[in-house]
């Protein structure tokens, strides 16, 4: 391990501790805000460390750094402005939107990494996390956008079902699974990646459309946990342990939160997810 790798390793570890402590403090109202700030401080440290590594070890061009800079500024300004100006009643759909873009970013990272390697040198140890990342990230991208639309009212809040929805759903799942296997076996064939991407996006839409608007917050929380897992997979793809730790942390904490939110509404997560399927107006 080089000196730089040691320093970065410990910085990432400190960031991970800040995320855990921050999340822990957010359980109680009196310390919740401090928890969020500690978590944010950990994030700043992790990002600065990543920039240092990328600059020192990267082979990037000015075009690459320019594209990154433009993207970060555009996204950062959009996020900050929307977060500061949103009406408090519209916060849930904004959180859902921020969750959607996180999943999209994770999927984009996996695809970029696959294209850069050109397929020839991709072994299953990297193609498996790439596939899982694209799959989960795309589902949470399109699913969270639909959930945000339902919360906002731009998409009807009632469970949306069309004849044969269950059949179409099953078909999409099969296509996504088949494409996943094909990408693992032949990572250099870009067509399979595109099929996987489209099928996963379609599944995200089909998964959330049948869910009632009142249940949407629980679904956003579930998709939030999904994004955590997608980010952890992206961490495996590019070998970043801060992303693996933070992603797994959010994946697990998000799952617990989802169960508690459903319990608070006297609902089970399973009945929410299958609520609209076939059973008509079941509120079970």
């Amino acid at each position: 391990m080089s000196a730089l790798a040691w320093v970065i390793g410990f910085v990432y570890l400190a960031a991970a501790v800040a995320f855990v402590v921050g999340l822990h403090l957010m359980r109680t109202p009196s310390s919740a805000r401090r928890g969020n700030l500690i978590s944010a401080a950990g994030m700043v440290v992790a990002i600065v460390a990543t920039v240092v590594v990328a600059v020192l070890e990267g082979t990037g061009t000015w075009l690459g750094w320019g594209a990154l800079g433009l993207g970060l500024i555009a996204g950062g300004v959009f996020g900050a402005v929307r977060a500061r100006t949103v009406k408090m009643t519209d916060v849930p759909q904004l959180v859902s939107l921020f969750n959607a873009v996180g999943g999209g970013a994770a999927a984009a990272i996996a695809i970029a990494d696959l294209l850069r390697r050109g397929g020839g040198t991709v072994t299953p140890t990297s193609s498996v996390p790439i596939v899982l990342d694209v799959l989960i990230g795309s589902i949470t991208l399109s699913g969270s956008l639909i959930a945000a639309g339902k919360l906002q009212g731009t998409i009807p809040g009632r469970p949306l079902l069309f004849p044969g929805a269950r059949f179409v759903n099953g078909l999409v799942v099969l296509v996504a699974l088949a494409a996943s296997v094909l990408v693992v076996l032949w990572p250099s064939t870009i067509a399979f990646v595109i099929v996987l991407l489209v099928a996963a996006l379609a599944f995200g839409v089909l998964m959330v459309l049948p869910i009632g608007g009142a249940d949407a917050p629980v679904v956003v929380s579930l998709l939030n946990a999904f994004t955590g897992l997608a980010v952890a997979m992206a961490g495996f793809v590019i070998g970043n342990q801060a992303m693996i730790i933070a992603g797994a942390l959010v994946g697990a904490a998000g799952t617990i939160l989802t169960l508690q939110m459903a319990a608070a509404m006297n609902r089970s997560v399973l009945s929410i997810l299958i609520g609209g399927f076939g059973t008509g107006g079941s509120t079970g």
């Binding site: 978590s39 990543t50 990037g60 970029a112 980010v231 970043n240 801060a242 998000g254």
Partner: peptide
């Protein structure tokens, strides 16, 4: 708030964006 806080933590994905910028060609 908890959901939103966890959502912010998976924003660490920005580290991945920086990493792919370092090798984009």
């Amino acid at each position: 708030p908890m959901m939103s806080g966890a959502n912010a933590i998976h924003g660490v994905v920005v580290a991945g964006a920086i990493a792919i910028a370092a090798f984009a060609d």
